[in-house]
Amino acid sequence: MKVIIDDKEFEAEYGEYILDVARRNGIHIPTLCHSDAVPGQGSCRLCIVEVYERGKNKVVVSCLYPITGEIKVYTNSEKIHRMRRNIIRLLAARAPGSEYIKKLKEEYGIPEETRFKVDEKEKCVLCGLCVKACEKLGSMAISTVNRGATKKVAPPFEEPPVDCIGCTSCAHVCPTGAIEVREYEGKRVIWNRTFELLKCTSCGRYFITREQYEYMKNRHGIDMKELLCDRCRQKSTAEKLVSLYKKLLVKKTLFQCYRLQKD
């Protein structure tokens, strides 16, 4: 079906989200809480757009608004721009410590905050991606606690989380770099819990926590015969492929020779 974004016509599947169509066609809409790995948050509200549908116009989040009829979308109208600036200002007042937010602030020309009280060290914008990622991977070690202005992300009772396996998915998915991970001398510290790291049997680099290894083995039945880090596993897989290909090539050549002989 057809959809008009910023006065240009594009093709879209029924039920496809505005953001996906826009991105596919090179239209930039800023996002923060959107991740292809854990979609469906709709919490940061940065990706708001104006939609005209059946004579009515409304402000919606493009990451979750499904295209089901003829609509016109404006991704950066005057109203949207004004409100998005306000949202960035609010985000910046909350988490001025984040590099990503600083960049957004610059992009939208937002002056230094002088009206609100600001906590310079704060980086978290409470988008909820870390909690979603942890939930999706099955550990459910962290959650949002409290509500309203006192809401935060934390492990149960703010103690080192028992269910955490130290996989750092939460830190990876975090758009503002708010989750701290430290690694030293074969140890990894995240959420105030210290994990022992295991070495790669090939290159000797520390790369996985014991809990991660056990988790994969017990929960998913993945038993790594040899402990290989990502880089070494890629290398070893590539080597295996090359040797397989070589063998196939030899076989193919022999087969061709045989056919030639027969003919």
């Binding site: 985000l91 909350r94 509500r147 006192t150």
Partner: peptide, 23 residues
Amino acid sequence: FLSEESCGKCTPCREGIRRMLEV
């Protein structure tokens, strides 16, 4: 009341109400 009772999920409600309250 609303700043305490907002669920805190989305930015405008959580941060916006809090800043309006500050003002």
